[in-house]
């Protein structure tokens, strides 16, 4: 097996399994999955499918944030619901991802038209409300020479401040709670960075997607990947950063959805009636095909 040619993008195959297990039979459930990547300048989606068990008819639409949503309802009694999303995506090479043009200065971010246009990414949400510690840190971000510098500072600050510990927080944790814990998962890293950026007046958004765990992945080898989250900020254009890994997203990152925070991009969300529900362990398999 050989690594791909330097400078070329990767071709990635991703299989994402998620779902719920129930204590008793569930008679009816309605769900929406946000697990399908879309093509954009940084990636080309060659194939994307969603399968649901028990079988259900799937309805697909594009939401306010441009995310592909797969909606379905199940009306047969069941004790387990699984969703499997598969896709094949061609990603851009790292150099292309990093080559963002020079960002604007702070003055441009304060322009009333920009503030109005991007207001949704400047206003705090419940998950990205800043506490005292974040407000103090935001002042440092604000003191950076450019918004881009400030944003990198913010991501670095988060990376230093939080320890990555699997299972240390829940899907409901917000930025302030994660900071108080001093640890979290990619979701918390993203929320803290976003809270910091917005407090400093930099429009910021949440990105969900998949990650191949190795930088020089072998071709054809299927490995365990991540259901991942990172951030984007706006400084004349949107640019991405992965605060969990303190790096610019590379060819191993597959973008699925963007929004104000996790609530806008939740991979699987729904309602049901019947026995208690427990999320199944999520698993992501990735294979670099080229």
């Amino acid at each position: 097996m050989t690594a791909g040619a330097p400078g070329a993008g990767w071709l990635l195959s991703v299989k994402h399994h998620t779902g719920y297990r129930y204590a008793g039979p569930v008679f009816s459930s309605y769900n929406e999955a946000r697990v399908t990547p879309r093509s954009d300048p940084r990636q080309r989606v060659l194939d994307a499918t969603v399968e649901v068990s028990p079988a259900a008819s799937l309805y697909r639409y594009v939401d306010y944030f441009g995310t592909v949503v797969t909606a379905f309802d199940v009306h047969a009694a069941h004790s387990e619901l699984t969703v499997t999303a598969s896709c094949v995506v061609e990603t851009a090479p790292a150099s292309a991802v990093e080559a963002a043009e020079d960002g604007t200065g702070w003055a441009a971010l304060a322009d009333p038209d920009t503030v109005d246009e991007l207001g949704e990414y400047l206003a705090p949400t419940q998950r990205t409300t800043a506490g005292d510690e974040l407000l103090a840190a935001a002042a440092q971000v604000r003191a950076a020479a450019t918004p881009d510098d400030g944003a990198r500072l913010a991501a670095g600050w988060t990376h230093t401040r939080l320890d990555y510990v699997t299972g240390s927080t829940s899907v409901h944790t917000n930025a302030v709670e994660a900071l108080a814990e001093g640890r979290g998962v990619c979701q918390d890293f993203a929320h803290v960075t976003i809270a910091l950026l917005r407090s400093a007046g930099v429009p910021a958004r949440y990105v969900s997607g998949y990650l191949h765990p190795t930088a020089d992945a072998a071709i054809g080898e299927t490995v365990t990947g991540e259901s991942h989250a990172w951030v984007e900020w706006w400084a004349g254009g949107w640019r991405a950063y992965d605060p969990t890994n303190d790096s610019v997203p590379g060819p191993g990152h597959v973008m699925v959805a963007r929004g104000r925070d996790y609530d806008d991009v939740t991979p699987l969300r729904g309602i049901y009636h019947g026995g208690d529900s427990q999320a199944l362990g999520v698993s992501v398999e990735v294979t670099r095909l080229r």
Partner: peptide, 10 residues
Amino acid sequence: HVRWAEEVAP
């Protein structure tokens, strides 16, 4: 009247 419960999975 059915009481629905919310569920979320990553």
